[in-house]
């Protein structure tokens, strides 16, 4: 059996990749992908801990996280579509009319 620390390390690794994508990628869609990656890292963590603690709570939590992530992505993409309509770009650096 694979020890659970391995899973935790993978989750931490995925989470960090997600943060890095969010910081360095300039495309809005890529930023959304980074957020997805972070959420999935959390899911791995929750399942592992749920297994360690011998409870179902963590696994139940994962299902909620997946559903909410979909809803959030839908709202995010709808907003991005509106942004694209007025700015004709999905580059996060160029979407910056608000300053002060």
């Amino acid at each position: 059996m694979i020890p659970s620390t391995h899973f935790l390390i993978i989750a931490a690794f995925l989470f960090s990749i997600g943060i890095i994508i969010l910081i360095i990628k300039r495309n809005a869609i890529a930023a959304l992908m980074g957020i997805e990656l972070m959420l999935n890292a959390v899911n791995i963590n929750l399942v592992v801990f749920s297994n360690l603690n011998r409870q179902m709570d963590g696994q139940m939590f994962v299902i909620f996280v997946i559903v909410v992530a979909v809803a959030e992505a839908a709202v995010g993409l709808a907003l991005l579509l509106q942004v694209y309509k007025s700015y004709k770009t999905s580059d996060l650096d160029k979407i910056s009319k608000l300053k002060g």
């Binding site: 989470f15 969010l22 809005a28 972070m38 959390v42 009319k97 608000l98």
Partner: peptide, 20 residues
């Protein structure tokens, strides 16, 4: 739309941090 999208990126990021 720009403000909403910025808010979305920050919000999703911080809720992912909170979840972790």
């Amino acid at each position: 739309a720009e403000a909403g999208f910025k808010y979305f990126i920050f919000g999703a990021f911080s809720s992912a941090l909170m979840l972790y």
